[in-house]
Structure formats: structure tokens, C-alpha cells
């Protein structure tokens, strides 16, 4: 079972919430913004979102730019 993270096929963790996935990646406490299946999800929602096969997850952040 897989889902897409930042355009890449990624194995889907079992019984996982979005918050759980991000924590496992060490991203939970970073400055990130989440877009799941085209919709922006607020930080306070991450705990209650269950990831599904085929989901498209975008994790973005600020970087240097002009």
C-alpha cells in the first residue's frame, strides 16, 4: 500500500495519522505546511487525519528566495 509524498510513491505506514507520519519523519516540530489531496490542512487537524492509500501529500516550507 502506498501513497504519494511530494510527488514520490511512498510506502503507507500502518494505521497511521498524519501527525504520526510527520513525527516519524522528524518533521512535526518544523515550520511546515501540509496540503493533502489538494486541500491545506491546519496543524490542529493533523492528529485526527488518517492517511489512506493513494493520498497525495505535499509537505512544503519556506526556503531562501528572491
Amino acid at each position: 500500500m502506498a501513497f504519494i509524498v511530494n510527488g514520490e510513491q511512498t510506502p503507507l505506514p500502518n494505521a497511521g495519522t498524519l501527525a504520526g507520519y510527520l513525527a516519524a519523519q522528524g518533521l512535526l516540530d518544523k515550520h511546515i505546511v501540509i496540503e493533502l489531496n489538494g486541500a491545506i490542512r491546519r496543524r490542529d487537524e493533523w492528529d485526527s487525519i488518517l492517511l489512506q492509500a493513494g493520498d497525495a501529500l505535499e509537505i512544503v516550507t519556506f526556503v531562501g528566495g528572491g
Binding site: K30, H31, I32, V33, E58, T61, F62, G64, G65, G66
Partner: peptide
Amino acid sequence: VTVAVRRINPAGMQEHIL
């Protein structure tokens, strides 16, 4: 200052622009 928005690069998250 201006900044850009990009997909995270896990390696680059150590020294974040902010």
C-alpha cells in the same frame, strides 16, 4: 525579506531559513 515556498528537503531541514 522575501522567501520562496518549496517541498521540504529532509536533509535541508536542519538549518531552516526561518
